[in-house]
Design a protein around this nucleic acid. Structure first.
Ligand code: MN
Ligand code: MN
Ligand code: ZN
Ligand code: ZN
Lengths: 141, 141
DNA sequence: GCGATAATTAGAACTATTCCAAACTTAGGC
DNA sequence: GCCTAAGTTTGGAATAGTTCTAATTATCGC
């Protein structure tokens, strides 16, 4: 069984679990995200998907991306008011936004860090998610 | 000397330091932020400022807010793709976004926490800023 | 295969923000 | 106290990213 059909199965499983259908558009969008994990925008996903599904529309790309986010197969990532970026990395991780290159890097987090960070919350605050964003520059080469 | 004129002086100082001028619009926008620290949007700031300067324009509110952010008297805060919110709290702090009420709460951070968080960065990553966002609900009353 | 339901599509609409060019204000130099 | 240059404000147009709409097409269970 190919990697891609494993992914397709995982996707179909998650989709049907939410009463949603597996479609070629959803599969291709998801595969595009898995193939090049550079946190593309919806426009960039659109461009990549087009080579396989030339008639897909931008609206469908937005629909598919939102579906994937809701199935928790993909995370939406925002920096300031820039276009939303999409990330298929499901491990707990932070994002480093390189202001020079514009590139976004995943920073894997030690198992206990998010708990440690959440422990600063006063009584009565119940966090469902924690997001950590670094902004700065990365060394060359 | 009133609190408000102390703020006005601090503002004038920061502005002239950057070769910028103190204007009534900038002062009123800054005072509005200091007076009610509920992370208002530009539109909300506009509405509040109007009662003191009825002829101010929305473009000017955006200009003033950007100026204040550049002088580092105010932080711009974003949640997903919602409108930018403005925060005059200069202590190191995280934001807690209550999904039920839509309200944003400041979470003061212990002195060492941001360093601890930054220490997860691999060699070669140089973070100029770290941002922490919690999302969830707060207990009633 | 058929009907019900879900998904896709193109384009219009929307929201928050930025851009623009003209008018106004302010700080200095005389 | 005026003049000029520079900075600022203003209303409206433009823009970017996303969401909405209504029509068409695909899929699923029977
Ligand atoms: Mn993130
Ligand atoms: Mn923040
Ligand atoms: Zn990521
Ligand atoms: Zn704040």
């Amino acid at each position: 069984m190919s990697i891609s059909s494993q992914n397709a199965d995982a996707l179909a499983e998650r989709l049907s679990h939410s009463g949603l259908r597996a479609t070629p558009q959803r599969e291709v969008v998801y595969n595009v995200l898995l193939k090049k994990r550079d946190h593309p925008t919806a426009d960039e996903v659109f461009a990549r998907v087009k080579s396989e599904l030339p008639t897909i529309s931008l609206a469908t790309v937005y629909n598919c991306l939102e579906t994937l986010v809701q199935c928790e197969l993909v995370r939406a990532v925002n920096f300031e008011r820039g276009p939303t970026r999409y990330c298929p990395n499901l491990r707990p991780h932070a994002h480093f936004h390189d202001e020079h290159t514009g590139k976004t890097h995943d920073i894997d987090l030690p198992a206990d860090l998010l708990d440690k960070v959440s422990s600063v919350l006063p009584q009565g605050y119940d966090a469902k998610s924690v997001e950590i964003i670094f902004r700065g520059k990365t060394a060359p080469h």
